[in-house]
């Protein structure tokens, strides 16, 4: 088992360590946070078969709560992050209690609907969230007494937390608990017949995934000194779904690759200036990165539904997601 994920994990670890020296450190922070965010979605979509189209609820919720805590108090950033996670998990437990009884499109719609409620609340509770101006932080504060202002230092701190969270997710899906999840995916009725309370398992995963997204969001907000409306927008929920599917649903590491690819594509496309495409002059497509993403994603859904890592695993003869 370990030798199978070994190479992937090793490559990711090396890239993770080298990243802030390869790209601008703040970009590296964003990338790492999105990677964990995508993992949280994969945990849900890949292992329970529930597609959340409102995962920004937890990402943004965790981000806002952490930022609000840091802006209003002088507590340690660690406490702010924990508050962000707890809030995201609480939300997930409440929403999950309603949502996990439904599947497919309905599940996607409930999560989207609740996420929209939070979006509008964040927009309108300007005294708390800053509304459309966002909530800017003067500093990242300190973690266990260490100042976090250096971007690379912050990146490595975040990387440790994110690596721990991903490790936890991998352990989870490889545990007996994960075995039940797989059984549920393959034949829900039989699993129920075997005496498992399926909805409780789903709720547990939903809550854990919410917590992971909350952690990712908190790290992102603190890293950027900013919690803004983008964090709770449904486009963000859509983007993380794209990352996950692009990387490979149900592979845990795939979404990390997907997030990396997505963010770097975004970064480079947005840096592209005007250019000529087969004689047609294209002005800057800075804001048109979505077009490129959408195109790549459409191809992925049509032709490579297993995603990049899923496809690679399948090619080397190993069934993805089979533990």
């Amino acid at each position: 088992m370990t030798q199978r994920i070994g190479p992937v994990a090793l490559i990711l670890a090396v890239v993770g360590l080298a990243l802030p020296w390869l790209v601008y450190p703040v970009v590296a922070i964003d990338l790492a946070c999105f990677a964990l965010f995508a993992v949280s979605l994969d945990l849900l979509f890949g292992f329970v078969g529930l597609l959340s189209f409102g995962q920004a609820l937890f990402w943004g919720g965790g981000g806002y709560l952490a930022a609000i805590t840091l802006a209003r108090t002088h507590v340690d950033a660690g406490i702010a992050i924990v508050i962000g996670i707890v809030y995201a998990m609480l939300l997930a437990a409440i929403v999950g209690a309603i949502a996990v009884r439904r599947a497919g499109i309905y599940f996607a719609m409930i999560t989207l609907g609740v996420a929209q409620i939070q979006y509008f609340s964040a927009f309108q509770l300007t005294d708390i969230t800053g509304g459309e101006n966002g909530l800017n932080l003067h500093s990242r504060g300190t973690l266990f007494g260490f100042a976090l202002e250096n971007d690379r230092l912050y990146y490595y701190v975040a990387l440790v937390l994110i690596a721990l969270a991903v490790w936890f997710a991998v352990r989870l899906v490889r545990s007996p608990f994960g075995g039940v999840l797989r059984a549920m995916r393959e034949n829900e009725t039989r699993t129920i017949a075997l005496g498992y309370r399926v909805n409780r398992y789903k709720l547990a995963v939903f809550t854990i995934a919410g917590g992971l997204a909350g952690l990712a969001g908190a790290l992102y907000a603190i890293g950027n000194h900013l919690a803004g409306l983008e964090m709770v927008d449904w486009h963000t929920s859509g983007a993380v779904v794209m990352m996950t599917v692009l990387g490979g649903v149900g592979t845990i590491f795939g979404p990390i690759v997907g997030a990396g690819l997505f963010e770097s594509l975004d970064y480079f496309v947005s840096k592209m200036g005007a250019f000529d495409f087969f004689g047609v002059h294209i002005p800057s497509i800075g804001e048109e990165t979505n077009m490129v993403m959408g195109f790549v994603f459409a191809l992925c859904v049509l032709l490579f539904r297993r995603g990049i890592v899923g496809e690679i695993l399948a090619r080397v003869g190993k069934r993805p997601g089979s533990g």
Binding site: E132, N133, G134, N224, G228, M231
Partner: peptide, 30 residues
Amino acid sequence: GPIANAKAREEFDNGAELALDMTNSATALA
């Protein structure tokens, strides 16, 4: 906001001495 924030950091760290314009309040505050 987050993009403005990250880009401003990158620009300042790469030697920019002045950041100018910042159309829209969220990016200006960031």
